[in-house]
Simulated scan of single mutants.
Amino acid sequence: MNTNQSPFKYILEGPTGATTNIQNKEMLYFAGVGYFQLHNHPDIIKASIDALQKYGISSATSRSGIGTTDLLLELDTKIAEFFDTDDAVYLPSGYLSNIAGIQALKAMGRFDIIFMDEVVHYCNEEAALTAGVPIFTFKSRDSKDLEHQIKTHLKASEKPLIVSDGMFPVWAWMAPIPEYLAIAEKYNGVIWVDDAHPVGIIGTNGRGTYDYFKLKSDRLFMGATLSKAFGAYGGFIPGSEEFIYHVKHGHVIDGSSSPVSAAAGAALKGLQLVGENPQWREQIRKNAVRLKDGLRAIGLEIEHNDFPITSFKVGGAEQMQKIHAELFKRNIYIQYTKYIGAGPEGVLRTVMFSTHTNEQIDHLLDNLKTII
């Protein structure tokens, strides 16, 4: 093992956007998850600076100590309003939202055993371990196998927790939550969804997976992040008054430092901007369809959806790495990744922003035609 080799191969030299400076080269950029490219929006930068000047970096204690400012309370309220729930809570990171949410459900006695999609994001695996209950996996997005596992392992007196990503980050596959909900109702269970990618970009109101499927139930729970579509940073959990009470009184809130004020200020503005500009969601869908149609025209197998993430395979790992490197030489950056769900050979992965132009998308397609 070469411990001197850095895992950070590509270094950004400025903010991300449709064009991004990577290692002193201006690149057409089709990566990351800044779907509306708000991370450098002037209104968000100003809101972040204003919060920093008023509150300093942070309160240097946990939210349950003396670390909750009026800024954080306002953000809790605005998150609840955006997601149309009784209450919400803002957390230092999206990664922590899964731990906090699952621990709160355990404290409420809502489950005794966990059934988890086999390719969930590892933050959910780690969150499940903190519950101290048996954990069983089921085939990804397979409701029949989920029910089989429940029938096999659930005792008569037990209640199940079903854990899944809402949208899986490599292929942008949606979990079949309506089918899971029917199973949860049948076995008196609940569902936890890590909704990091869908929030802000899908659903009638941009509220993510449950909004996309038009579902409401007291068996449905979720957590997510403000670091993607909303142009900020930090995690959050919306929900009922009782559920959020248990989140606020849990170990994550009690034991972690209060979130950074600049991020909270940015998040407030990001929620406002995304709420006021539904046309951004429409534009990102149009861009996604343009790219996917163009990739199919080249002869690639592409999912039939209008989600901004598009992944594809071309040959094996070596060939995909060569395609990635050749695009980089041509000042175009897409990802070659072996992220969760990509498989051992990896995939080539692109992400559309609402700010990509037709010309930029077509330039990527034209170059891929000459390389593949």
Rank of each mutant, 00 (worst) to 15 (best):
K144E: 10
K25C: 05
A131T: 05
K228V: 02
Q5F: 10
V247R: 09
P308G: 13
Y333I: 01
I323K: 14
D366Q: 15
Q5S: 13
G255E: 11
E158L: 00
R110V: 05
H153Q: 04
V347G: 14
Q5Y: 14
A100N: 08
D293A: 05
T19M: 12
L129M: 13
D112M: 07
H153S: 06
V119E: 11
S62F: 08
N287L: 07
M174E: 15
G34F: 11
I113D: 00
Q279T: 08
K151T: 13
T209K: 09
K329H: 13
R281L: 06
V33R: 15
F353P: 03
T3H: 12
L91K: 14
P178S: 00
G255F: 10
W280Y: 13
T370F: 09
G315V: 12
Q321F: 13
P238N: 13
M320H: 10
V347N: 11
I334P: 09
D112G: 02
A317G: 14
H304M: 12
E158H: 08
V289P: 09
G132K: 06
G343D: 06
H246K: 14
E282R: 06
R63W: 08
F312I: 14
F328N: 06
V133T: 07
A262M: 04
S261L: 02
F312M: 11
V119G: 03
K159G: 04
S59D: 11
I113S: 06
A229Q: 08
I135E: 05
I284T: 08
I302P: 03
P169L: 11
E318W: 13
N40E: 12
L71Q: 04
A100G: 03
D254M: 12
L161A: 01
H324T: 02
V252S: 00
P7D: 11
G94S: 10
M116E: 02
P92L: 06
T357Q: 01
Q279P: 03
S258H: 06
G223N: 01
L300Q: 00
K322F: 09
H304A: 02
K25G: 01
N305Y: 04
